[in-house]
Design a protein around this nucleic acid. Sequence first.
DNA 1: TATAAACCTATCGGTTTAGTAGGTTATTGA
DNA 2: TCAATAACCTACTAAACCGATAGGTTTATA
Lengths: 135, 135
Amino acid sequence: MLSKKTKYGIKALSYLAKRTDKSPVQAAEIARSENISPKFLESILLNLRKSGFLGSKKGKGGGYYLIKDPKEIQMTTVIRVLEGPIAMIPCVSLNYYEKCEDCPDELTCSVHKLMIEVRDSTLKVLGENTLADLS
Amino acid sequence: MLSKKTKYGIKALSYLAKRTDKSPVQAAEIARSENISPKFLESILLNLRKSGFLGSKKGKGGGYYLIKDPKEIQMTTVIRVLEGPIAMIPCVSLNYYEKCEDCPDELTCSVHKLMIEVRDSTLKVLGENTLADLS
DNA sequence: TATAAACCTATCGGTTTAGTAGGTTATTGA
DNA sequence: TCAATAACCTACTAAACCGATAGGTTTATA
């Protein structure tokens, strides 16, 4: 399950991607428009700025803006930053790999192979979609 | 992320599916063989029995056994029982649907469409695999 | 009748989630 | 220069969930 943090983050990015002009948008405006708790969204936007998705401007007329072209932002990278691993289990994660304590051998694990299949199909969908595709 | 409960449950079911004879297997044996906390596994097996996957026999020589042919058990149904929804977000779940509080309209939600795509690709993989395929 | 094994209930420490509160810093326009 | 604005930062919290543990009850077998 996607956390609200991730969902809100995607909605905020998508909100910015839809705008034609690239002037800064205040966090409060996004929060209002997308029905997100303002303070919670603030922390998410901060996170997205530190991760290199957003730029920001302080003071009056300030706000957040997209740094890259929405077409260049794959959903895989967005979700990895906000949510963490895309795989359903750490032992098949490409970016957040972790060995299972209970498995002596991954190759004979009945769950492992299945989860690789799931991971790859999910990666395909998320890799083919960019921020620009969220309409 | 899959919970350990789900992972252990799948491993236990797979352990039973691999056996040629269909005599009951004790929870403790599965726990030992799969490196699972015995008491935790007990509660999972109980869950699987109540959900109709397993039968059980009490007393000496008792244990758990598969009720159906492993080929007939789709991984979708296993995961739904153990983990809950397969979708990454409740508003696209087929079996555990829930409306989002923040979305006035699902059709215009940028996250919604993407998550339907992810859901469908995951359902395809899990639907094509049965307990028998876990080898 | 002793033993084995499923079954049941309750509890628990730790972590994560989804926020809230309250203040600090930097920019802008009057 | 000063007040307003909006990002930035730190800390806290209530509730839920997770992974397990403890301890007892029931039922079947030898």
